[in-house]
Write a protein that binds this DNA or RNA. Structure first.
Lengths: 129, 129
DNA sequence: CCGGATCCTAAGGGATACTG
DNA sequence: CAGTATCCCTTAGGATCCGG
């Protein structure tokens, strides 16, 4: 639905925010990251993904794979054998994306404690209503 | 719903993915980034945000502000005047987060073209069904 | 000016059963 | 093995109106 270049005609720092969302939209789903991580270390088969990405349903696995493939983040290779064999591989673009997420990982680890404290404090504060 | 430390008991590289989602969950909403960007440059009032963050509804502005405040990313200061004046400011933690997103912004800009080409190619390929 | 309360729609996502 | 197809529920989010 949201195209890539809807970041024009804003004119402010909000254009920056829009560019960020551009990236987040491709990785924002519940399962995208888990799949990308699993596919980053080489070709992975459908069933392998189903096991490695804990809790994912067959349906969501298929859907997320299709989206990632469509965005050029995964490459899908079908081996015309019986039984069928399909391998998914992260593209260079996807690997770059994953490395860009390292900064985010660091941030999350550094502030994990502060965040839950902030939440606890907020909830305490707003307990009586 | 999702607590902060649900990343244990996985044991694989998937724990990494889980940490990434930890960060994304706090910024994954449709409006969070836009609000943070606007609040990054100093105190902003409610109505200012309503104008700067284009397209946001009153309801979502309030909700997102509350969530960001609860996570310790925004500070809310109420001036007991008439009419009321409320200022929102990004906390240092939020500023760090924003800087961590720069890598993501760069990625989005670098691959913007490649992504839309990949989409076009995929859609062309899968046109006949 | 800064919201809260209510109602409603749409999108995300889970469970399950079926198929080439 | 690698998916489709269906059904259903839950959540995000928009529209609108009311209140301190």
């Amino acid at each position: 639905m949201s195209q890539g270049n809807s970041c024009v005609s804003i004119g402010r720092a909000q254009a920056r925010a829009c560019t960020v969302r551009e990236a987040l939209d491709r990785v924002g789903g519940k399962w995208s990251i888990g799949i990308l991580v699993a596919a980053a270390k080489g070709p992975v088969r459908f069933t392998e993904l189903e096991r490695q990405v804990e809790g994912i349903s067959r349906r969501m696995l298929t859907l997320t794979l299709r989206n990632l493939e469509r965005d050029g983040l995964l490459h899908r290779r079908v081996h015309p054998t019986v039984p069928p064999k399909v391998e998914y591989t992260a593209t260079p673009m996807a690997l770059e994306l994953y490395e860009s997420l390292v900064a985010l990982t660091d941030w999350a680890e550094r502030h994990r404690g502060a965040i839950s404290e902030a939440r606890a404090a907020y909830d305490r504060e707003h307990a009586g209503q």
